Computed example of a mutant assay.
Amino acid sequence: MPDQTPHSAAGHFGTAGMRRLSLSNLGSAVPADARAVLEQVGVPVVVAPYFAAAGETDGLTLGLYAGHHGLRCDESQAHWVRVGADRLAHMAVSADGMVYAVFLDRTEPGMFVNSDVSVFRSCCLFDLEWCPSNGSLDRVIAAGAGHGNRASW
């Protein structure tokens, strides 16, 4: 990647502000393009108060993370890559490359967040650049998606 132009998120958050995930030896089920984004650019380490990236020692899949923390994980989601969490759900990339908010150890179904990890990362950057207070992402999403003054996730 040295000969490529850095992604705008990497430019904004800096190298230390992006968490890259090493997935090459992992039995995860994510498409090659999602894998490349996660390995080469990553996701922001923190977008307060909405998102914190998976820790360096966290299990990379939902199943591994859940097992390490004594939580239940739906077997159909066990191989999804866990990229981080907000204060309620775990953000994970599914086998089809979409990003979902998953509620481990609960009966509620996961909720669609973004069509792919690049869009998710861009939304994180958008919130910081467009809404410097970091307090308006819910209102922005609700206004655009019609979810009654709350974020869709």
Rank of each mutant, 00 (worst) to 15 (best):
10 A>K: 08
96 D>I: 10
79 H>T: 14
18 M>S: 03
148 G>F: 04
76 S>A: 15
57 T>S: 10
85 A>S: 09
46 V>P: 00
111 M>H: 10
143 A>I: 08
69 H>K: 14
41 V>M: 03
70 G>A: 04
143 A>Q: 01
5 T>P: 03
60 L>E: 13
109 P>Y: 07
46 V>H: 07
116 D>P: 13
8 S>D: 14
137 L>T: 03
115 S>T: 08
89 A>F: 04
135 G>L: 14
125 L>Y: 11
6 P>A: 09
120 F>I: 06
110 G>C: 07
35 R>S: 03
55 G>T: 11
62 L>R: 10
75 E>P: 13
139 R>K: 07
18 M>Q: 03
106 R>D: 05
48 A>I: 06
148 G>D: 09
142 A>V: 08
69 H>E: 12
69 H>G: 00
18 M>Y: 05
14 G>I: 04
126 F>D: 12
22 S>I: 00
17 G>D: 12
10 A>N: 08
136 S>P: 00
116 D>V: 02
34 A>S: 14
132 P>Q: 01
144 G>A: 15
3 D>P: 04
93 V>M: 00
27 G>H: 11
48 A>R: 07
70 G>Q: 06
25 N>V: 09
63 G>F: 06
10 A>F: 02
70 G>R: 03
102 V>Q: 06
93 V>N: 13
153 W>T: 08
3 D>C: 06
129 E>R: 08
75 E>Q: 15
139 R>L: 13
103 F>T: 04
89 A>N: 02
129 E>G: 00
41 V>Y: 00
137 L>M: 15
57 T>W: 02
119 V>K: 11
78 A>Q: 09
88 L>S: 10
148 G>K: 02
27 G>R: 14
35 R>H: 15
22 S>L: 02
7 H>K: 04
51 F>S: 03
3 D>T: 13
100 Y>E: 07
97 G>Y: 05
132 P>T: 04
133 S>V: 03
23 L>I: 06
59 G>F: 10
2 P>Y: 07
13 F>K: 00
139 R>T: 15
63 G>Q: 01
127 D>I: 14
135 G>R: 04
55 G>E: 12
112 F>N: 08
101 A>R: 15
126 F>Y: 12
14 G>W: 01
140 V>R: 02
108 E>P: 06
111 M>A: 15
59 G>Y: 00
153 W>L: 07
67 G>T: 02
130 W>M: 12
96 D>A: 15
7 H>I: 02
146 G>Y: 04
118 S>C: 01
45 V>E: 08
32 A>R: 10
28 S>W: 05
76 S>Y: 12
107 T>R: 03
36 A>L: 04
4 Q>W: 07
13 F>G: 00
86 D>R: 06
78 A>W: 03
151 A>R: 03
4 Q>A: 13
138 D>N: 06
47 V>E: 02
144 G>Y: 01
32 A>N: 09
113 V>Q: 13
145 A>I: 06
60 L>K: 12
2 P>Q: 08
55 G>K: 11
122 S>V: 07
25 N>R: 12
62 L>C: 08
91 M>Q: 07
148 G>T: 01
1 M>P: 00
110 G>K: 07
25 N>A: 06
124 C>W: 13
41 V>T: 10
122 S>E: 14
153 W>C: 12
